[in-house]
Nucleic acid binder design. Sequence first.
DNA 1: TTCCCTCTCGACCGAACGTTCGGTTTACTA
DNA 2: TAGTAAACCGAACGTTCGGTCGAGAGGGAA
Lengths: 207, 207
Amino acid sequence: MKTTVATTTAHRPPRATPRRPPYDAATLLEVAVTVFNERGYDGTSMEDLARAAGITKSSFYHHVDGKEALLAAACDRALDALFAVRDEAGSNTGAAIDRFEYVLRRTSQILLTELPYVTLLLRVRGNTPTEQAALERRREFDRFTADLVAQAMADGDLRSDIEAGLATRLAFGTLNSVTEWYRVTRETSPDAVVDGAVGVIVRGLRP
Amino acid sequence: MKTTVATTTAHRPPRATPRRPPYDAATLLEVAVTVFNERGYDGTSMEDLARAAGITKSSFYHHVDGKEALLAAACDRALDALFAVRDEAGSNTGAAIDRFEYVLRRTSQILLTELPYVTLLLRVRGNTPTEQAALERRREFDRFTADLVAQAMADGDLRSDIEAGLATRLAFGTLNSVTEWYRVTRETSPDAVVDGAVGVIVRGLRP
DNA sequence: TTCCCTCTCGACCGAACGTTCGGTTTACTA
DNA sequence: TAGTAAACCGAACGTTCGGTCGAGAGGGAA
């Protein structure tokens, strides 16, 4: 890591690697979210983020607005993807049970394609207005799904011996738990996880 | 701090507040865990804890060894309860499917009786050796259960079209998700939650 | 060459962090 | 009434936090 030669010029930033393309906000967001998920948001310092990106803290600040802005951007990315699902045709046409299963499947797909962002979203506790806003959007999505569950129960397509709210929470709990352990490997494909999780949920909830 | 004239009192000093019994370590641990679960461990300062207890930071330190010691004590309490289940007769005798169901039920009961401590345990990320030790004990418990699942699959008592590791993780994911939303209320009794969760899991995993 | 803009840096700031310490109050006993 | 130990407190310690600042390096355009 030391600047070996080139001592003649007093000011010579270490250029060990051939040349890295300049960072953009999206790339640094990805780096930040990765570290956030490893150490936790509050447990991560801006110094940690800069080190992970291979630049100094002040350089890092040149590209991003601040720590909380990173969190907000990450949550928004996850939430936008989820709300896009809510507006898809499959979530709004047909029997409630089919719409519920569609939402489950699409949600779990997004959970895997946007894994780091969703993981971070699921861990915010509401400490700041930013986090509270993210929590509120999450709840709105949960409410949308809970209505589907209640409707499917009324239709007799889901077992109604447990409360609709409990069923919804268990369903999302099962899905969301994937963020706690899933890592992309050759053995466990995303599709297998999606099929497995959704399958277990709907079989567990059917009458 | 004025020295009141009441030097003559001798028997009944005027007491504005009734007087709180002195704190002990267990009570302050409970307070700490509650705040940790609200704000997150790293997001909680010792000042926050002291304020929640109604004493100053330095008084708080009179009773506890430090922030990390509180985390360790809380994790140990949760883990000790879980490992006690592993050693119970119901977890080690009979068919694997019955033992699995027994472990699930007892685990979810402990999850509710020791809710704050288990909640905190499930959120540690391994930032310190203390946290890593807790994570390792958790994994040991998961391995124990995964063996039961694999055996029950071999017996034909659980569907074997999904991987045993995936099934175990989904089962615990469903159970553990309860910590994310469960609050003691009159409407939703702990027993109803236990029955609901365990029921959904075993029905989802049966052949 | 000069200008200009982007990117990077070291140095720095006030605030908050976990923790310590000297000293005061309280409850109880002798 | 004096002595004692536990409970408690205010003030500060050294460190780390998120964030700022002025300046240098590099490259393209004139």
